[in-house]
Simulated assay, not measured.
Amino acid sequence: MKLRNDVTLRKVGNEHIIVEPSQGMVDLSTVFTLNDTAAFLWKELDGREFDNDTVVDLLIDNYEVEREVAEKDAAALLQHFRGQGLIVD
């Protein structure tokens, strides 16, 4: 799977946001806000193929987290991204 390539993560103030493009303009009715960890993962995964294990490994390598917790967190994040249409398979 990959992240959509037509959306871009931006930092506005202290917030990390992804805005849906709409016919050459920004559609502010669809804004996704990410916490610092989700934004880090987005940056690491952007432009590359990945799977659940990739996200788990990134969490374990960069945060003090047990594998079981990382697996649950990765699954929840990917489910959220998928539910928002931010992932293409």
Rank of each mutant, 00 (worst) to 15 (best):
G47V: 00
D46F: 10
S22L: 10
E20N: 09
N14V: 03
T37F: 09
T8K: 13
V7T: 15
A38Q: 11
E15F: 08
V26C: 15
S29F: 11
E49K: 13
N14C: 12
D36E: 14
V31I: 10
L45P: 05
S22K: 10
V7Q: 09
S22P: 04
D6Q: 13
F50Q: 02
G47A: 01
R48C: 07
D36I: 04
A39E: 12
K11S: 07
E15L: 09
I18F: 02
S29V: 06
W42T: 00
T30G: 01
L34S: 00
A38E: 08
E20F: 05
T8L: 14
V26P: 08
E15S: 07
F32S: 01
T37A: 08
E44N: 07
V7L: 10
L41D: 01
S22H: 15
V26Q: 14
T8N: 11
R10W: 09
S22I: 05
L9C: 08
F40C: 00
E44V: 03
N35A: 02
D6V: 10
Q23C: 05
L34N: 02
L28I: 08
M25L: 15
S29W: 15
Q23K: 07
E44G: 01
I18E: 01
G24D: 13
V12M: 12
H16Q: 07
L28W: 09
R10I: 12
F32W: 08
T8R: 08
N35R: 09
A39K: 01
H16M: 04
V19C: 01
V26K: 05
G24L: 07
K43E: 14
D27H: 08
E49C: 05
L41S: 00
S29C: 15
V31G: 03
Q23P: 08
D46Q: 06
P21A: 03
P21Q: 14
A39H: 04
F40Q: 08
G47W: 11
S22E: 14
I17T: 03
K43S: 13
E49F: 04
P21N: 06
M25C: 09
G13F: 13
A38G: 05
N35D: 13
A38L: 06
G13E: 12
S29Y: 10
P21F: 06
R10H: 11
T8C: 11
E44K: 04
G24R: 10
L34W: 00
L34M: 02
M25Q: 14
N35S: 14
N14S: 15
I18D: 03
E44T: 04
G13K: 12
F50W: 05
L45E: 14
S29Q: 12
Q23G: 07
Q23N: 11
W42D: 01
V31E: 10
F50G: 00
W42N: 00
D36K: 09
I17R: 02
T33W: 12
D6T: 06
D46W: 08
S22T: 05
E44H: 13
E49H: 07
R10C: 09
D46L: 04
V26D: 11
V12S: 14
L28T: 10
D46N: 13
G24Y: 14
L34Y: 00
N35F: 08
E20H: 07
I18V: 05
T37P: 05
H16A: 00
K11M: 10
K11W: 13
T30F: 09
E49M: 11
I18P: 02
M25I: 07
G24M: 12
T33F: 15
D36N: 10
L45M: 02
S29M: 13
L41W: 01
S22N: 15
R10Q: 15
